[in-house]
Amino acid sequence: MSESGFLEPFGGAVCLDFANTLDGRATAQPTEYVHTYVDLAGWSEFAGLIDAPTSARLRRHDSEASLRTALNLREAIFEVFTAVGRGETPPAGSLDEVRQRYAEAVASARLGPAPEGSFTWEFTGDQPDRAWWPIAVDAVRLLTQGPLNRVKVCAAEAGCIGLFLDTSKNRSRRWCTMDGCGVEAKVQRQARRRQATRR
């Protein structure tokens, strides 16, 4: 966990990191990092989507409606990319949720210059939804531009289900983090080996 109280990002894409803000989804006690709209604005700042002054202004809204929309988007992103990572067909309803939020986001954006002579969506103003607009854009960017063949689901047996982009050369990464689920998996393997030896 970072000093800000949020989970350190490991997804390799903003939309995947946002999906991971509900950690340990298949465990008995998942950890929620976005309880309130203030948390949402704080996470958006933590992820570099808005600056500190914008975050401070947005937090004054404390918008319950925007929080609900953001969390619905988060669950849709999780369902879509979990399916992608497992080689399955994403749920149509989840894809439509991502599409709708993307449409809302770009309707409030403007095109501005980006590195290497390209253009990107830019957001201004202090509307509460600004905290999640870039997440919706990032999700559609990953869906349409990839690399979808590098989207993976954490293989930890403990129920992490974290999403990440496998950027290793041979695409051999199996766990969300080597110092977290990776270590736990090694410990479990060693325990099984010891048990097998005893038998």
Rank of each mutant, 00 (worst) to 15 (best):
Met1Gly: 07
Phe6Tyr: 13
Leu7Val: 10
Leu7Glu: 09
Ala13Gln: 13
Val14Ser: 03
Cys15Thr: 12
Leu16Glu: 04
Asp17Trp: 01
Ala19Asp: 03
Thr21Cys: 02
Gly24Tyr: 13
Ala28Phe: 08
Gln29Leu: 14
Glu32Asp: 01
Glu32Lys: 00
Glu32Cys: 00
Val34Asp: 00
Thr36Gln: 08
Asp39Thr: 02
Asp39Val: 01
Asp39Leu: 12
Trp43Met: 07
Trp43Lys: 08
Trp43Asp: 00
Glu45Thr: 06
Ala47Asp: 05
Gly48Tyr: 09
Gly48Ala: 12
Leu49Gln: 02
Ile50Arg: 00
Ile50Pro: 00
Asp51Gly: 08
Thr54Arg: 13
Ser55Leu: 05
Arg60Thr: 11
Arg60Lys: 12
Ser63Thr: 02
Ser66Asn: 03
Ser66His: 06
Leu67Thr: 04
Leu71Cys: 11
Glu75Phe: 04
Glu75Lys: 06
Glu75Thr: 15
Ala76Asp: 10
Ile77Val: 10
Phe78Leu: 03
Phe78Thr: 09
Val80Leu: 10
Phe81Met: 01
Phe81Tyr: 13
Val84Arg: 12
Val84Pro: 03
Glu88Phe: 01
Glu88Ala: 11
Glu88Lys: 15
Thr89Asp: 07
Pro90Asp: 11
Pro91His: 15
Ser94Cys: 12
Ser94Phe: 05
Ser94Asp: 01
Asp96Gly: 04
Arg99Met: 07
Gln100Val: 04
Gln100Met: 01
Tyr102Cys: 12
Tyr102Val: 00
Ala105Pro: 05
Ala105Asn: 01
Val106Phe: 02
Ala107Gly: 08
Ser108His: 12
Ser108Ala: 11
Leu111Val: 15
Gly112Phe: 15
Pro113Tyr: 11
Ala114Cys: 07
Pro115Ile: 03
Gly117Ala: 12
Trp121Gln: 06
Phe123Ile: 07
Phe123Trp: 09
Asp126Glu: 15
Pro134Arg: 13
Ile135Thr: 12
Ala136Glu: 01
Ala136Thr: 01
Ala136Gly: 04
Ala139Ser: 04
Ala139Leu: 02
Val140Met: 06
Gly146Glu: 01
Leu148Lys: 05
Asn149Lys: 09
Asn149Ala: 10
Asn149Gly: 15
Arg150Cys: 06
Arg150Leu: 03
Val151Asp: 02
Val151Lys: 02
Val151Met: 05
Ala155Cys: 13
Ile161His: 07
Ile161Asp: 12
Phe164Pro: 05
Leu165Thr: 06
Leu165Gln: 03
Asp166Ser: 09
Lys169Trp: 07
Arg171Gln: 11
Arg171Lys: 10
Ser172Val: 05
Trp175Cys: 15
Trp175Met: 00
Thr177Ile: 09
Thr177Gly: 00
Thr177Met: 04
Thr177Phe: 05
Gly180His: 08
Cys181His: 10
Val183Arg: 08
Arg192Gly: 02
Gln195Cys: 02
Gln195Asn: 09
Gln195Glu: 10
Thr197Gln: 14
Arg198Ser: 14
Arg199Ser: 14
